[in-house]
Simulated scan of single mutants.
Amino acid sequence: MSDPNVTDFTDPSSFILLGIPGLEVAYAWLSIPFCTMYIISLLGNFSILYIVKTEPSLHVPMYYFLCMLAVTDLVLCTSILPKTLSIFWFNSREIDFTACLTQMFFLHCFSIMESGILVAMALDRYVAICDPLRHSTILTNAVVVKTGLAIALRSSMLVLPCPILARQLRYCRTTIILHSYCQNIAVVSLACSDIRISNYYALFVIFFITVLDLVFITLSYTQILRAVFSLPTKDARLKTFGTCGSHLCAILAFYIPALFSFLAYRFGSNVPQHFHILLSNIYLLAPPVLNPIIYGVRTRQIQDRLFRLFIHKGT
């Protein structure tokens, strides 16, 4: 008897997402933290956007970049969470082939976009601390807009070949994706044609973006630390370094889960598959959840605006 999940050298009309294989009995429980994280992400990032929009004193490059980060986080978590929750709650595993490739594009594009925004924020902090008198003339609104467009263009151009290459492949094995979303490697591994070009290109993008962006961030913060430690008083050093604390936390929240996910997938051959998939989800969900909390807790201007907002509603 033929397997209904195997095609005869034809492109599939849809795929089947298994979710997190091995943890099916725990889907109801897993949906609680996943849904909670999604709600926190939506509330937190929309709050950041609202506060920056309504507070004129926050209309400066640092908070414009923070708004870009909030929009990126909203798209990133929304690209995977609704489908993942539908698998957990309704066993809705089928996803259209085109929708799968679209999801692949958005989650990888906005992951790279987030990395680019973190670089832009690091450069903003570098100029603000190392050359404060020229900060307003260097980082004008026009420069911020052009930087945002450059980040979006870079991400789109680098990621677009991934779904294009995936569409050109022939799928003749199975339509079952052993994942909770359409990750590039999980999709192309189902193809019966040669996937070396697709794999090599994906690895190139990962290493190119990671190395390039981390080099810029490291150089920026090396200069920032040199400027901070050259300040005459301890209070001045602590105050200046405190302005960078939230950004450093955001960088760690993005790159640490990404590094663990990559290392576990590439080198953790003995790690259970469900652990790989959970790490992949955490890598995409941690920044949208943590960034609003980090900036809300560590940024005095946002704290003050939130406090005034609640006081106003209370009266």
Rank of each mutant, 00 (worst) to 15 (best):
S261T: 15
Y201L: 02
S136E: 15
H135A: 15
Y64D: 04
F267N: 06
F9T: 15
D124Q: 15
Y181L: 02
A202H: 07
Q168D: 14
P33R: 06
L149S: 07
S57K: 11
P161R: 11
P12A: 12
A28R: 11
P33N: 11
L158Q: 04
L43Y: 08
K53D: 08
L74G: 03
I164D: 02
C162Y: 06
T54V: 10
Y171D: 01
D304M: 11
Y283S: 12
M121K: 04
L160M: 13
Y171M: 03
S246R: 08
C192I: 09
L231G: 01
F15H: 03
L165K: 09
L309N: 10
R196W: 09
L123P: 02
A258D: 03
V297H: 07
A99D: 06
V119L: 04
R134D: 04
Y255K: 05
Y255V: 13
L278T: 13
L42A: 10
G242M: 05
I294G: 01
I129R: 03
G268H: 08
P163M: 11
I251F: 08
F65K: 00
S198Q: 10
G242P: 01
W29N: 09
L30R: 02
G242I: 14
D235R: 12
K53S: 10
S47C: 14
R93L: 07
V119R: 01
S115L: 12
W89K: 06
F260G: 06
T140R: 14
D8R: 14
V25L: 06
T243A: 07
S220P: 00
Y126W: 10
I282M: 05
N141I: 08
A152V: 10
R226N: 13
T98H: 13
T174G: 07
T137V: 14
L81V: 15
V52L: 02
L107R: 08
S246T: 06
L238R: 14
R170D: 13
L123H: 07
T175P: 01
P232W: 06
Y295F: 14
S57W: 03
A264M: 03
V145I: 15
P33S: 10
V127C: 04
A191Y: 00
A236K: 12
M62T: 14
T175N: 12
D131Y: 12
F260D: 05
Q303F: 06
N141D: 05
W89M: 11
L107A: 06
F216A: 13
V215H: 06
I80D: 00
P257G: 11
R300Q: 13
L85R: 04
E55S: 11
P4C: 12
G19T: 02
A152I: 05
G245D: 02
S115H: 10
A128C: 05
T36R: 05
W29K: 14
M1C: 12
